[in-house]
């Protein structure tokens, strides 16, 4: 059963189309991943779903409710973890959570219980009385998530919840998301980190320039680039001419070069590797390392757009 239906949704900012006629559906209990580089339009789409901004066109149903006409019912179903930390820095973690709980209509004993639970989920029960501005980035992110769980939403929408944090906090967050999903919560998780989406999500949409350019399970997406490998070469002394020569080689589909890292998509690494190396050496490029990678979501993105996921 599709729980969220997104029908031909667009959002224009003047000439820029941030969300371009997107349609897809999310099933109940799904852990849906939305992968795309910065500026793809992920946050805009999420803001539309959570009724924060009005779309220029299209319709969205959540549990059969039109978000335009049934806004307040829809808001009760959804919990948003915004991309930016939306907390009051001079208030303590406990005070923040109590404030947000009250805003969700909670009160009395129930509020106290939910705040306690949320602190446990964040793993910060012992820090309830500390001010948010004394927290590390990762701790803030965890409270930022906890604040969206107070009203026990059916759907948790997370917008890049792990940006700029330490590995422990990241692991904690990923595990929490998995656990919540196993307990039955539908999750929409956006990120520009391919690894996170690949690790977490059962169903994935890849977004670029306001459009969904591919959608499916991990396996389905990988098939798009089946038999395609990525050769990664670290080098110095590069020049544009040599890249053009490599691009023209048989079996080379695409190349990118970012900060000394050359990525080459190819149908068969074995047949082209030798030619690539000799071409680079002829051009006096210095090769430092060579890696051959199996296809992943990164290579799917590269295949579809001709660009790397990270800018």
């Amino acid at each position: 059963m599709s729980y969220i239906q997104i029908k031909s949704v667009s959002k224009k900012y003047g000439d820029l189309t941030a969300v371009d006629n997107i349609s897809f559906e999310i099933k109940e209990g799904e852990l849906f991943g939305l992968l795309g580089p910065n500026g793809a339009g992920k946050s805009t789409l999420i803001s539309i779903i959570t009724t924060l901004i009005k779309p220029s066109g299209g319709q969205i149903l959540v549990n059969g409710l039109d978000i335009k006409t049934k806004q307040s019912e829809v808001k009760k179903i959804l919990g948003l973890v915004p991309q930016d930390i939306a907390l009051y820095p001079t208030l303590t973690a406990g005070e923040n959570l109590a404030f947000w709980g009250k805003m969700y209509g909670l009160g009395g004993r129930l509020l106290k219980e939910r705040v306690k639970e949320a602190l446990e989920i964040a793993g910060l029960s012992d820090r309830a009385k500390n001010r948010i501005d004394s927290f590390s980035g990762g701790m803030k992110r965890r409270i930022n998530i906890a604040a969206a769980l107070l009203h026990k939403p059916k759907v948790l929408i997370m917008d890049e919840p792990t940006v700029g944090i330490d590995p422990q906090s990241r692991n904690h967050i990923l595990e929490t998301v998995q656990k919540l999903n196993k307990e039955g919560m539908t999750v929409i998780y956006t990120s520009h980190y391919m690894e996170e989406i690949e690790f977490l999500c059962s169903y994935i949409g890849i977004m670029d320039h306001g459009k969904i350019i591919a959608m499916g399970t991990k396996e389905e997406l990988r098939k798009l680039v089946s038999n395609k490998d990525v050769i990664k070469i670290k080098l110095t002394n590069e020049n544009d001419a040599v890249f053009n020569t490599i691009k023209k080689l048989d079996n080379v589909d695409n190349i990118t070069f970012i900060d000394g890292d050359l990525s080459i998509n190819t149908g068969n690494a074995d047949t082209v590797l030798a030619k690539i190396i000799s071409t680079l050496e002829n051009a006096k490029c210095k090769i430092q390392t060579i890696n051959i990678e199996q296809s992943n979501l990164e290579s799917v993105f590269l295949h579809l757009t001709g660009r790397a996921l990270r800018d």
């Binding site: 924060l52 808001k75 930016d84 939306a86 907390l87 009051y88 969700y104 604040a147």
Partner: peptide
Amino acid sequence: TRTLGRVLTTR
């Protein structure tokens, strides 16, 4: 600080 946006997702 985006708290306005968050307030608007509540009731």
